[in-house]
Every structure is written in structure tokens, then in C-alpha cells.
Design a protein around this nucleic acid. Structure first.
Lengths: 229, 229
DNA sequence: AGGCTACTGTCAGATTCTGGCAGTATCCGT
DNA sequence: ACGGATACTGCCAGAATCTGACAGTAGCCT
């Protein structure tokens, strides 16, 4: 196995263990000596991997992952840049910042002439959404990622207010509004909640008892989404 | 210089020369022997680089470029995926396909568990735009990239029709419409053209006499774009 | 205090990379 | 049809790099 493949494997090993892992354990997993492992860790850190080692504990990798060298065509890069710019203008502040960071990371490794093309890039998005979300969409995304329940007040289309506890599993981005897709404990059914009608959002620490992939699949089947994807 | 850096340099060298370059010339540029260059080419092709070698001519690289290994956080990947999905739903067919390809390339190199997360991903875009563009936006993007003139019929907001020759330098994506930003030869001023009001679009082979970056900058200054970026 | 762990330096042996050479096949212009 | 330029492959010895082992220092936790 080549060194660069091994470095990717190392990242994956680190990703699997959420708790700190000792260098020795990682070295055994990869079939290399501890000394070489230390060298590999340094190499990865040099490439920007957020790996932290603490004496007496082991190594931890901040959530994320590494892409190997990848070739993109002109149009593919244009598409990614345009898409990231669109996300950067969404009202979800953390996601927006993440999109900007991702773009910055890509720009940082491009040769000068391409970086200019990208900066002065010709595909624009606009205008930025006017709406300010009343709630922190980051909390919603986090709840979805971790399969945790959410509680909030909801004011439906008719104006009727209610208190909900839901199992969120998707977040839909439309032109003007964003919609939380979830199983509603109160109604015992799938429900969609416009984020601008949600108030007093509170993440609940309990994990809901189903896998979000399964719920997504079931929801898709239920609604027989007409337009694919 | 490490081998992987050299491989990136090789890609950049190939990108600079648009015409076929001989292996010997590339080897000299990089300060390596021709034999090693052949080996490097094979390695790059193995990583998916669209490099073509022809006996008697030399090597050419299809437009595009290579990203080195890159580390992204959870949210950065979410942002890129969401953005690419949005682009994939835009009515620009080729750009949409490019976005889908880019996503596929990324998915292909992800470990299984992450690929599932991505496929069954929780950030959705919808619904797909209903509109069908009357013109091929790919032509517009190509004209912008190559700084070429465009000719078309335009029907303005008042319904008045006109024939235009313009110097396009940007394409704006709004919720419902897309807008070509250009210098209009007829009016001798910056003009915006909604793509759904353009007909009989014809790319012209003449290059327009200004740099698109400069025009973009000037246009931004002129309109003092109110909301940044 | 003791155990565990991260981390560094050094060095010899293993591994990989590199350059040179010889040889074949293909494309181009004349 | 021919010659020149070029891509491409196999082989081998020397160069460069990587690896493992050992020794040692320092920080964290119980």
C-alpha cells in the first residue's frame, strides 16, 4: 500500500474512533510501527488535518474528512463555486460561513491565474435573502445529524399555534423559505414546518428511536416525490 | 520537492500550454528525466487526470484542474453538497450535469459510511425550477469564459424588441430568473438581460477588446452593489 | 508517584524512486 | 514512402526516501 493511501486510511481510522485513540492502537490497525505513525500524523497535520494529540490520552480528529487529489473540469468547478456562493447567501449563518470557508480552502490551493478567475468569477448569486431566520438553523442541522428530538412552538398557515416535539430528519431549502421535515410526535405523522413559523426552538438531548435514513426513505415513499431526487 | 508536489506542478505546466507539449519539454521544465516524466504522466492518468499523449505531437490536458488532498469539516461538506444540489436543479443543463458529476466524483472517493450520509443527505433543495430556458446558457458561459461577443434579440420589460450585440462578463442567478450582465454595444453602456427574454442567441467569434475582470470591477463600482460581494 | 502516552533524534536496513539505455509503435510533414 | 519527432515499455543499478527499532524527554491522568 502506498504511503498516500495509508494516510487516507489513517484519517478514516481516526474518524471511526470518536474517543481518543493511542498511537500504538492506530499503528497496529494500519500494520506499521509506532514511529512511522508519528511521522504520518505530522504529515497529515502539515496538510491541514485537525488532528490533536494529547499525552496520556491519544489522538482525536475533529469531525470532518479528507478528500484525496481530485480532478475537476472547468464546468465542475464553476458549478461548485456557484453552488457554494448560493449557500453562502443563505440565512443559515453557520452553514453560510462553512460555504465561504470551503471556497477559501479551494482558492488557497489554486494557482494564481485560476484564483483570479475564481475571485472575479462570472457566475453570481443574488440578491442575498432578505429574511432573517428567527431560529438557529445550525441547531436543526445538528439535531438531524445526531438524530435528536426538537421541541418548538409552531404557528401554522391558519395562524393556529401549537407546541410540538418532533424527530427531524431533513431540511429543505426553497427559494424563499426553509422547511424542517420531521416525524411529529404530537400528530404521529410526517409533518413539514416552515422555519419562519417556528419559535422557541429547543434541542432535546434524547435520541429518537429511528434511523434518519429510514425515515427519509419512508417519507419519500409516502409523498411519492414527483420530481425525483 | 516531493513527488506529489511535482505531480501538481506537472498538471499546472500542462494547463499553461494549450497546444500539445512534448514530454522532453515538460521534463526539462520540471527538472526531471524523460523517463520519470512518463511515469508521472501514468500516475496522474491513474488519478483521473484527462491527459492525452499522441505520438509525434506531445501531451494535452483537457481544460480543468486538480485539487491536492483537502480537509473539510462536516459543515463545509454539507455546504458544498447542498450548493451542488442547488446548481444541479438549475435550468442550465450542462452546468447542472457538471454539478451532478462533481458530486459523483466526491462521493466516489468517500468511505462507505460517509457516502451513505451523503446520498441520504438531509439537506434538500426543491422544487426544481419549472422554467425551461429558451436559450443555451452553456453558450453564454462559454462566451464569458472566452471573452467573446454575443448577438441576440431582446424583448424588454415594456415589450419592445431590439437586436443587440453585447460583451458578456457575468451571469447572475436569481430565484426565478437568470440575468446576463454585459456591456451593450448598441447602447454603449452596461445592461442586464433576463435570459427568458433573449431569443436567437448567437455566439460571435470575435473577442471583445476588454478584460472581463476589469469590466466586472467597473460594473460593480457603477452600480455600487448595495449588499456586498 | 507511577503508568500511559505524545513526541524527537539517530541510524541502519528495506523500499521506492530515478535516470539511462535499448527497443517498438505511431503520427506528421515532405 | 520516408525520415524525424514523439509516445511508450522493460530493465537495471545507483540515489533518495521511508521505515522500524531503540533511547530519551515531557505532559496528562489516577
Amino acid at each position: 500500500m502506498s504511503r498516500s493511501e495509508r494516510l487516507l486510511d489513517l484519517i478514516q481510522s481516526l474518524r471511526r474512533h470518536r474517543r481518543p485513540v493511542s498511537g500504538q492502537a492506530l499503528a497496529d490497525e494500519l500494520g506499521i510501527s509506532i514511529r512511522t505513525l508519528y511521522r504520518d500524523i505530522v504529515t497529515l497535520q502539515g496538510q491541514g488535518a485537525p488532528i490533536e494529540g494529547e499525552a496520556g490520552l491519544g489522538y482525536v480528529l475533529k469531525p470532518g474528512f479528507m478528500l484525496p487529489p481530485l480532478m475537476f473540469s472547468d464546468e465542475e468547478i464553476e458549478a461548485i463555486v456557484l453552488g457554494s456562493r448560493w449557500v453562502a447567501k443563505q440565512p443559515d449563518r453557520r452553514l453560510s460561513a462553512a460555504a465561504a470557508n470551503a471556497l477559501a480552502k479551494i482558492a488557497a490551493v489554486l494557482p494564481d491565474d485560476l484564483r483570479e478567475d475564481l475571485d472575479a468569477s462570472t457566475l453570481l448569486v443574488g440578491p442575498p435573502a432578505e429574511v432573517i431566520e428567527g431560529i438557529d438553523l445550525g441547531l436543526v442541522r445538528q439535531a438531524i445529524r445526531n438524530e435528536r428530538k426538537l421541541a418548538f412552538h409552531y404557528r401554522d398557515a391558519g395562524g393556529a399555534a401549537s407546541q410540538r416535539v418532533v424527530w427531524p430528519f431533513a431540511l429543505g431549502f426553497f427559494d424563499k423559505v426553509r422547511v424542517v421535515v420531521a416525524w411529529c410526535e404530537t400528530r404521529q405523522d410526517f409533518r413539514h414546518f416552515r422555519t419562519d413559523r417556528i419559535a422557541e426552538l429547543k434541542p432535546i438531548d434524547t435520541r429518537y428511536p429511528r434511523r434518519r435514513q429510514a425515515m427519509l426513505k419512508e417519507w419519500r415513499a409516502t409523498f411519492d416525490r414527483p420530481r425525483g431526487s
